[in-house]
């Protein structure tokens, strides 16, 4: 069937389509390759490549400010993700389960922070914290990150819930489970993949957020993106490249593990 519909491509077509695909990948990965390349450069200036070295990778561990910012980012991302996942999941379940007046309005309101320019959200959060006398720092940063992450968690969990069979909950109740046990033993485990992808999304958004962090933090909590931005003014040191390359490697491994796991799961089902 497919042979009838797709004719065999000619040589010219083959060359064109392959080089086009190659260009796309170059476009996507060349900047990343540059960062990795210069993380191995012995020269401090990132214009010419002198010699291969691993010293910058060692230097990361002596650059306390850089390391601090990295751990701040991880801590903020973990805390804000946890808050966003709890609030977002419960919101999605409530929206799925109950019909109430103004539900569609609330649904629409959840989309607004997603499309709103980050700078607006940043300013609003800043003035809200000022009004509420929340000192800018670690706590305000976590609250801000949780705020913009919640809608994303709601959406991913809602997507998972749309395929959820409510008779599963009824079956559990029929078998003697009260409402709490239905939630913890049936509903949440079944929608867990949605919760995990919501969490992954929230975590990623938090890690690389710059604009909102810029408005909502003080000197006590400087995240990795803020730190890099700061160092750009005085010229980026190669150890920043090295840390970036390491983060990239970690991301790469995480993606591969996720792919392998989902492939295995598909094989099992």
């Amino acid at each position: 069937m497919s042979k009838l519909l797709t004719k065999t491509p000619s040589l010219a077509e083959k060359i064109f389509s392959r080089s086009f695909s190659a260009l796309i990948f170059i476009f996507l990965y060349a900047p990343i390759a540059v960062v990795v390349l210069f993380s191995f450069n012995s020269s401090k200036r990132n214009i010419v490549f002198e010699n291969f070295t691993l010293k910058w990778y060692g230097e990361i561990f002596y650059n306390d400010a850089l390391l601090d910012s990295f751990f701040t980012t991880l801590a903020v991302a973990s805390a804000s993700t946890l808050i966003a996942v709890v609030i977002g999941t419960l919101t999605a379940i409530a929206m799925f389960r109950y019909k109430f007046k103004g539900k569609s309005i609330i649904d629409a309101l959840l989309y607004v922070p997603v499309v709103m320019p980050e700078i607006v959200l940043g300013i609003s959060l800043l003035s809200s914290f000022a009004l509420a006398h929340v000192p800018l720092g670690f706590v305000s940063l976590i609250i801000a990150h949780a705020t913009f992450s919640i809608p994303f968690v709601v959406f991913t969990v809602q997507a998972r819930l749309s395929g959820f069979d409510r008779s599963l909950e009824e079956a559990a109740m029929d078998l003697g489970a009260n409402r709490i046990r239905v939630l913890t033993g049936i509903t949440i485990p079944v929608i867990f993949p949605g919760i995990i992808s919501g969490a992954a999304l929230a975590f990623t958004l938090s890690i690389d957020d710059f604009i909102i962090s810029f408005f909502t933090t003080g000197a006590s909590a400087v995240t990795f993106p803020l730190k890099i931005m700061e160092s750009v003014r005085s010229g980026i040191r190669p150890d920043v490249y090295a840390l970036s390359a390491l983060i990239m490697l970690a991301t790469f491994i995480a993606v591969i593990i996720a792919q392998v796991l989902s492939y295995r799961k598909k094989q099992k089902l």
Binding site: S167, L168, E170, A171, D174, A177, P189, V190
Partner: peptide
């Protein structure tokens, strides 16, 4: 509530817990 009744149900689509 359903869990307080001495009655059990076999559902049309079975409603087996997938996990």
């Amino acid at each position: 509530e359903p869990y307080q009744r001495n009655i059990n149900t076999v559902f049309q689509n079975y409603a087996l817990f997938p996990h």
